[in-house]
Write a protein that binds this DNA or RNA. Structure first.
Lengths: 244, 244
DNA sequence: ACCTGAACACCGTTCAAGT
DNA sequence: ACCTGAACACCGTTCAAGT
């Protein structure tokens, strides 16, 4: 079904030699930022696994190797994409109520990680942050904990625990994680039956719930457990010191 | 530097044609299990990213395409590897004490996920379990919760929360996750200084702790928070029903 | 300073041809 | 039933040659 266009008539016999070097026509739009943005576009359009130097370059109308003038490697490009997506997180202003503030931060993180194509989330969640850029979310989370009287060391543990939970939950939500439940009732039905068939008594008993999964509610369940536990522990600590 | 070997004298003019088909010599050791095991060997020796159909086949002394007689695709091979690693988890016997049992299950999961090359962990943690095999860990965890009086639906939420936390923590530990801390003091030192330099007040204040990371202790901190919260919530629920 | 051609050493996968 | 050759459409990356 692919029709070859008719050959254009060559008016000038002086055929141009195979062109090399930077084409003079191009209004050199190539830059590190433009590359990262183009990569995000590829993710939005075709998913993470479609990201290649060639696919990104194609979107920029340039050869893949040209990217090496602005990035160090594909891996560093992936890091940059993760940073870009994370930088879009809207860090909420603190109210002074730890419960409310932690919940707001968690929701903002979830929105940022899952915004744009879900595939981008796996990048954000599975690569180490080593650039010290984008520390705003961390700073505000620490501020929330320490404003509520947390010791520095304890605050770091609490932040890491929260981040680990969110990473695990969102990775599951981005359709790449340990899970048995399904969003789609078309899938959940047969799966429930299969779980009952396993013969494992407890698995069979919880099959109706295990076969179904509401990502938003599941995220809330765990984050509430953690927040309540943090608040309770801080209250206990402040009571201890006041008693003396 | 590549020396071509001298051509062997051909005694028989009936030169064998380019051999095709299954070589009669091979004691056909190829099987799905053998392939999965060879893949795990590749991971242990060279890391996850070294796993390719060609590298696995090489270890088996066979052509890469031969694998397609036993596996459906590379992706299904990765699923099988994850299943194999998970199947090595030693599921602990329950004591009846929810705190103790949950902690034992969590530690066993951590050991299984991190056993062999760390790269295998990312496979186990980042692929959905869809084969209904290997449900033993899930069954025993549900048994622990429900033995302590948990409602089926709540037990499912609790299991998912715990698994999400462990996934996030272990992914960080398998050197692929959101983290700023380092195991190595050689790295932690300069990183602490860099964190202080950021100018972010709370980040700077917690820099000594944020720059350091003891994976085992960190895992324990979060899992204890969760377990205590679960136990407290179950106690409250049982008090509520008894009061009536 | 920045882009391309040629080249290299890889990938996963299909399919017909062999035993 | 199971393995290989040939082939295809991809990869990331280096480096010299061009502008």
């Amino acid at each position: 079904m692919t029709t070859t266009p008719p050959p254009r008539p060559r008016l000038r016999p002086t055929a141009a030699p195979a062109r090399r070097g930077r084409p003079p026509t191009g209004s050199s739009t190539l830059s590190r930022d433009a590359i990262v943005l183009a990569a995000v576009e590829v993710i939005d359009a075709e998913g993470v696994e479609a990201v290649s130097l060639r696919s990104v370059a194609r979107r920029l109308g340039v050869d893949a190797k040209a990217l090496y003038n602005h990035i160090e490697s594909k891996d560093s490009l992936l890091d940059a994409i993760a940073g870009e997506v994370l930088s879009r997180m809207v860090v909420p202003a603190l109210t002074g109520d730890l419960s409310i503030d932690l919940m707001a931060i968690a929701q903002a993180f979830r929105v940022a990680a899952l915004s744009s194509h879900r595939g981008a989330a796996t990048l954000v969640l599975s690569r180490p942050v080593e650039s010290l850029a984008n520390l705003a979310p961390l700073e505000v989370t620490l501020a929330a904990f320490m404003g509520a009287g947390a010791e520095p060391e304890w605050a770091v543990h609490a932040v890491r625990t929260t981040l680990a939970y969110m990473t695990g939950t969102l990775l599951r939500e981005a359709s790449a994680g340990l899970t048995l439940g399904a969003d789609d009732p078309e899938i959940a039905g047969p799966r429930e039956a299969a779980l009952v068939e396993t013969g494992l008594p407890h698995v069979a008993r919880v099959a109706p719930y295990l076969s179904r999964l509401d990502h938003a509610r599941e995220f809330d369940f765990g984050i509430k457990i953690l927040i309540d536990a943090f608040v309770a522990q801080l209250e206990r600590a402040s009571l201890d010191t006041r008693e003396r």
